[in-house]
């Protein structure tokens, strides 16, 4: 992910913390300065206290009447919507990857299916996935399952094409070796092809991670009534830049966390790679 500049991990963390504090201070300086000289009614760069106040402001969307504290209300709203966005993204990836790998292996195993579907897949793959948002909007409206279908589909196309390619690139020597040890075609796919393609799929899955995140947000901007993207749009409509910044920070945070988790998992799975 981010290359360590110092070998010492602690030094590394301190370095990044200092950088973040510096950025925050610069932001605060620019924001307060622009407030003094403002020509516009709308505050384009909110100051730090205003941004933090933005968290409280989200409590107005809270439907739970038991919670009166604005901080808790605000955090709850942010939490609930974050969970909505993250489950959509992760759920879509899991479905898309499983279907993509499974059908990729199946089509490789039964060449007839591959010849049948490959041209279609190649064509669909080239279409930038976000251009299909209006289409999905029309088909599914603001339905929850529509977002899931859209994300799963996008991930599926990406993964199946890469799976087919990965299977093609499995070194012939492993196949020959397996045959001379008595493997039949099915055993070959189960014990050789499948483990062999996993390292090659890490890259595409990582891309899918980023793509699914973007797709979920796009769907939330345009159609769906929950999620971080939806909060972003609500904030924008009321010109509440400070709330938009809060949502943006959450975007970045979750994106980094998911990416980090994925890198750790993928390193463990491919520990055997030379």
């Amino acid at each position: 992910m981010i290359k360590s500049i110092y070998k010492n991990k602690l030094k590394n963390i301190i370095f990044y913390l200092i950088m973040i504090i510096v950025i925050i201070l610069i932001w605060q300086f620019i924001a307060s300065y622009s407030q003094i000289n403002q020509e516009y009614d709308i505050q384009l760069m909110p100051t730090l206290p205003e941004i933090i106040r933005g968290i409280k402001e989200f409590s107005i969307f809270n439907n739970d009447l038991n919670i009166t504290n604005q901080w808790i209300g605000g955090i709850q709203v942010l939490l609930v919507n974050s969970v909505a966005t993250i489950t959509r993204a992760l759920g879509g990836i899991v479905i898309g990857v499983f279907l993509g790998v499974f059908l990729g292996l199946l089509f490789s195993f039964v060449p007839f299916l591959r010849y049948l579907f490959f041209p279609t897949l190649q064509i669909i793959r080239v279409i930038p996935i976000l251009t299909l948002v209006p289409l999905f909007l029309l088909w599914f409206g603001d339905q929850e399952y529509g977002v899931w279908i859209y994300v799963s589909f996008a991930v599926f196309i990406l993964i199946i094409v890469n799976t087919l390619e990965a299977v093609r690139n499995v070194p012939k020597k492993y196949t020959q070796y397996a045959f001379t040890l008595g493997a039949n075609r099915f055993q070959l796919f189960r014990t050789v092809i499948f483990p062999a393609i996993i390292p090659r799929l890490i890259g595409p899955i990582r891309v899918a991670l980023g793509a699914s995140w973007a797709i979920v947000l796009a769907a939330e901007y345009l159609a769906v009534q929950t999620g971080l993207g939806y909060l972003m749009i609500l904030s924008e409509r009321f010109f509440k830049i400070n709330r938009m910044i809060v949502v943006t920070i959450l975007f970045v945070l979750f994106s980094l966390i998911l990416n980090n988790i994925f890198v750790r998992i993928s390193r463990r799975i491919t520990h055997w790679v030379n």
């Binding site: 020597k173 492993y174 020959q176 070796y177 397996a178 045959f179 001379t180 040890l181 008595g182 014990t191 050789v192 483990p195 062999a196 996993i198 055997w272 790679v273 030379n274």
Partner: peptide, 27 residues
């Protein structure tokens, strides 16, 4: 190809995703 005719290739073909003993057990 058949398991009655085993081949030792010039390249290293043992499966990198399996341990040594699981490689020997493969057949």
């Amino acid at each position: 190809p058949h398991r009655s005719r085993g081949v030792v290739f010039q390249q290293d073909v043992i499966f990198p995703w399996r341990t040594v003993i699981k490689n020997v057990e493969y057949g």
